[in-house]
Every structure is written in structure tokens, then in C-alpha cells.
């Protein structure tokens, strides 16, 4: 990173990430969009989360796959990936049904980015994990149960 960018990053304190990145010249102002979706992350049920995402009524689809193990040895770190072969996927969200706030993460995919993301999430207990995908302005979804087990001495 050059000096100018470093200074710009330092100066960008109150701008939020995208304002900051724009100031740093890392992204163009046109890309600065979407504030952190508080109402979706604070929602306490799948239904409310879908509503906050504008995805109410998302239909089940076999065009999305969740790549995750059936069993996780520890709920603190559960690898979850979402893949789709559909073209033009715009956004992907990962929801964990039995977490206090189901929404774990959401991704916006500019044109050219593949519908393939992987991350790691916390799960309080065995639960369905949902992948909600926005494609062609429409929402579709799939789900998979991941069992959370105890691994070691139990203490």
C-alpha cells in the first residue's frame, strides 16, 4: 500500500468501510453501497430475517448446494460453504435456524464473481443451516442439518 493510501485510511475514521475505501482509492464511489443490514442481523427468527433481507417467500431449490460436514466436532467453528452453478447470482446469505440471531453472513457478488463462498460460523446447537441466494432479482434457498457434537473429555 502506498503512503497516500495509508494516510487516507487513517483519515477515514468516521466514513464507514465503503466511504473509507472510496477515500483510499481502493474502490470507486459508485461501489459504495449497502449499509450493514442491522434489522436482518438483529432478527430473531428465520421469517423475520428473510423479511429484512427482502427474501420472504424464497422457494426451495436444488440449484444451490451447502458444502459442510454433517457433523461438527465443535460448534464454535463450523465450516459452511454455499455453491451454485446458476449464472448471475447477486447475493448469498447464510442463516442458522437455532442461533439467537439466525443471520450469520451475507455476501454481495459483483458480476464476474462466482457463486462459491466459504466461511466458518458458530452454532449453539444442532440446527438447520440455510443458504438463501438472490439470482435474477428472485430469491431461492436450500437447507442442510448440521449436528453439533461433543468431542473430548466433556468438561
Amino acid at each position: 500500500m502506498n503512503m497516500q493510501r495509508r494516510e487516507a485510511l487513517k483519515a477515514g475514521g468516521g466514513l464507514g468501510l465503503f466511504g473509507l475505501l472510496a477515500a483510499a482509492g481502493l474502490i470507486t464511489p459508485g461501489q459504495a453501497r449497502a449499509e450493514w443490514n442491522k434489522s436482518a442481523f438483529d432478527a430473531k427468527s428465520i421469517e423475520d430475517t428473510l423479511k429484512a433481507l427482502g427474501a420472504t417467500g424464497a422457494e426451495n431449490s436444488t440449484d444451490i448446494q451447502i458444502t459442510a460436514p454433517d457433523i461438527a466436532e465443535n460448534g464454535a467453528v463450523v465450516p459452511v460453504g454455499v455453491v451454485s452453478a446458476l449464472a448471475g447470482v447477486e447475493a448469498i446469505a447464510i442463516l442458522i435456524e437455532k442461533n439467537p440471531n439466525p443471520l450469520a453472513a451475507s455476501f454481495m457478488l459483483p458480476a464476474g464473481t462466482e457463486a462459491s463462498v466459504q466461511t466458518r460460523v458458530k452454532m449453539g446447537q444442532t440446527s438447520d443451516v440455510l443458504a438463501v441466494v438472490k439470482v435474477g432479482g428472485k430469491f431461492i434457498m436450500t437447507k442442510k442439518e448440521i449436528k453439533v457434537t461433543l468431542g473430548g473429555c466433556g468438561g
Binding site: I71, K147, T149, L150, G151, C153, G154, G155
Partner: peptide
């Protein structure tokens, strides 16, 4: 902590 060492009820896989 019986499950640490023994298989018991079928439903507990761990």
C-alpha cells in the same frame, strides 16, 4: 460422563 468412554443410547453418536 459415561459417554466419554461407553456407547449407551443409540441416539448419542458422540
Amino acid at each position: 460422563n459415561c459417554y466419554a468412554c461407553h456407547q449407551l443410547a443409540k441416539k448419542e453418536v458422540a
